[in-house]
Computed example of a mutant assay.
Amino acid sequence: MTSATGSLFGWFLQLVVAYTVVDIDGVLESDLGQPFAAYLEQCMPQKSAQAILALTIIAGFFMGQGCMIAASRVTFAYARDDCFPLSKYWKQVNKHTHTPVNAVWLNVALGICLLLLILAGPLAVGSLFSIGAIGAFVAFTLPIFIRVFFVGDRFRPGPWNLGVFSVPCGVIASAFVALMVPILCLPSVTGADLTPDLMNWTCLVYGGPMVLITIWWMVSARKWFKGPKVNIEHLMLGRDGTVLDGEGKDRGSDYASSGETVSGKIAAEGLGPGQGR
């Protein structure tokens, strides 16, 4: 519903902009440096435009906080599995807040360093922002691609799933991203007199680290990384509600006969916050 609502209202917003913009070239070439700000100044009083821009800045700030939370969660997850150097520090869970504070501060420091690129000019910071779309596309589509083309009938659907439409939708999603990734790497300007500031740096800024990570995996990581670490017995709910272990065997009767529940087993193992999978 979040995606559907955002798409619907975003479409209406585009319609409003398309039918109220006065001078498209003036918006794109404005000295303000922000096309949206130039558009607002064209179609409404200055104070109203400033008020909307203030709300936009506030919304952007909180959007950044949401991204920081997501980045910290991913950092903690990888560190918990010892995926990169100094993982023992980033996976520590604060005993007072029960949160991975070190992982949060790591992302804060990295975010501040990346923001300093704005001092180097629009070319540097633009190359950073350019990877946003392609990074999100690839991150969301990789699990779908693996589920459709590698897992097959071994996939265990959750309580909400697409049923028979799961694979067709996954194929369409994977094909769409396979088409969009090259498009997002193309420059928006063509011609013989291209300059660095007209270059689309997505292929280098995103592709470069991906190549290095792939080499690292082939040379080293594949030899020692065996997948996510599970520090409690791997228990899953089967499709009929029975408790299964990692080998797919029914363990429900074992727990029922002993009067032990999954939560009770976790408590008996003494696992604290942030320690269970």
Rank of each mutant, 00 (worst) to 15 (best):
V125E: 02
L15P: 00
V125P: 07
A221I: 05
T202I: 00
N94S: 09
L86Y: 11
L198D: 04
M1K: 08
L212M: 12
P157Y: 07
V262G: 05
F225Y: 15
G132Y: 14
R251D: 02
M199F: 06
N94K: 12
I213D: 12
Q275I: 03
Q65F: 15
L235V: 06
A120H: 10
V138P: 05
M218Q: 08
G274I: 07
L244D: 02
T195M: 02
L32D: 11
L28G: 09
D25H: 09
I58C: 07
W105M: 05
S220I: 00
L55C: 09
C113M: 10
S127I: 06
G191T: 09
A268K: 11
V27M: 14
T190K: 13
K91S: 05
K229C: 07
V125T: 12
R73H: 06
A77V: 11
M68K: 03
V171F: 08
R73S: 13
I183F: 15
T242D: 08
G66A: 07
G246L: 11
F76W: 12
S188P: 13
E233P: 11
T2K: 14
F129P: 03
A133H: 02
L28I: 04
G241E: 10
A71R: 05
A54L: 08
S253W: 10
A71P: 00
S220H: 04
A256I: 09
G264Y: 08
L86N: 02
V164H: 09
I58G: 04
A192T: 15
G66L: 14
M44R: 04
G111I: 11
L115R: 06
V219H: 08
P168T: 10
R147S: 15
E269A: 14
E247H: 04
S258T: 12
A77Y: 00
D193S: 03
K91Q: 05
V125M: 06
A77P: 12
N231L: 15
F84K: 00
K88H: 11
M199W: 09
S127Y: 01
F12I: 03
P35W: 03
W160F: 14
V211W: 00
A192W: 03
S130T: 06
S220K: 01
I131W: 03
S188Y: 11
A136W: 14
G33C: 04
M210W: 02
N94C: 01
I112D: 01
A139H: 10
L237P: 00
P159Q: 12
P85R: 00
L53N: 00
V219E: 03
L128S: 13
